[in-house]
């Protein structure tokens, strides 16, 4: 209870308090900003010191390599279409890795998410277990699994596919379970009342509600996975990344090939981004009449 006997604070007191408050806020903000700037500066200096080349030298040379590659590519521009055709199968392999791993990952993610959503899970006691499985498979960078699998299976698309699929299952599983939480349980209860099994309840009661959201997230993941599968190719898992590393290790004289691969990768990513962006837009806002 406030003390009613004291007179209300005068205007000057209120103003004084207010100014003190804003000043305190400003000081805190200033300290935070100073810490942040100091962290950035110290981080940059540490990174610069531990790097092989210094920032200043590198900054002046940033455009040397692209200029070299572009120069050579322009010189041999007549061969460019041939290279584009030559590397197209590798690009298809990269896309296949991304698509297959997105599909497998999404299917696993759907199952994991249904198993770990309250209200839908057949075994509520095991929800934390499935959540941890998703957390861990999301936390492992793809490259870790890919490198270990390359040792076991040899190079090729399969290690990359498995590695990306595991990560995708975790990442999509988390997003899907957030979507599932908003799904209405009425269809599920209805189906249960007529004796549907768990799989039937999920397939007929839940999936139609959340399907568009699932597809939209999976498309977004597909974009990310194309990049990931190109990167994994670079460490030996086939596809366009592998070709890029080969043509780069040849060094000068083969830069036209590298340029062709850069171009293919760039076009693919832009096209897929655009297409899936439009598709996702239609999924979330409905088709334009």
């Amino acid at each position: 209870m406030p003390d009613l006997n004291t007179s209300p604070p005068s205007l000057t007191e209120i103003r004084g308090d207010y100014i003190a408050l804003t000043q305190r806020k400003r000081v805190y903000g200033g300290i935070l900003l100073a810490i942040f700037v100091a962290l950035m500066a110290a981080g940059f200096r540490t990174a610069d010191a531990r790097n092989a080349g210094s920032f200043r030298d590198g900054f002046n040379n940033v455009f040397d390599y692209p200029a070299e590659v572009l120069g050579e590519a322009l010189e041999k521009s007549a061969q460019l279409p041939g290279h584009l055709v030559h590397f197209f199968p590798a690009l298809v392999e990269t896309l296949n890795i991304a698509a297959a791993s997105t599909l497998i990952g999404a299917i696993a993610g759907i199952i994991l998410s249904l198993l770990s959503t309250r209200g839908l899970a057949p075994w509520p006691a095991l929800i934390p277990v499935f959540r941890r499985i998703m957390d861990i498979s999301r936390a492992i960078p793809e490259i870790v699994i890919a490198l270990v699998l390359i040792f076991l299976l040899g190079g090729g698309p399969v290690p990359a596919m498995i590695a990306i699929a595991i990560h995708t299952a975790g990442a999509l599983g988390k997003l899907f379970s957030e979507v599932n939480e908003n799904a209405s349980l009425k269809p599920v209860d209805g189906l249960e009342s007529v004796g549907a099994s768990w799989a039937q309840r999920m397939y007929l009661g839940v999936i139609p509600q959340v399907g568009p959201n699932y597809v939209s997230y999976a498309l977004l993941r597909f974009e990310i996975n194309i990049r990931a599968s190109a990167i994994l190719g670079f460490v030996g898992a086939g596809g366009i990344g592998y070709e890029l590393r080969n043509s780069m290790s040849w060094g000068q004289g083969r830069y036209d090939e590298a340029a062709a691969i850069f171009l293919l990768l760039f076009i693919t990513i832009v096209v897929v981004d655009q297409l899936s962006g439009q598709l996702r837009d239609r999924m979330t806002h409905g088709a334009k009449a």
Binding site: A47, A52, Y65
Partner: peptide
Amino acid sequence: LSRAFGPGPL
């Protein structure tokens, strides 16, 4: 970038 700056965290 690794062509210009060499290997390392930067």
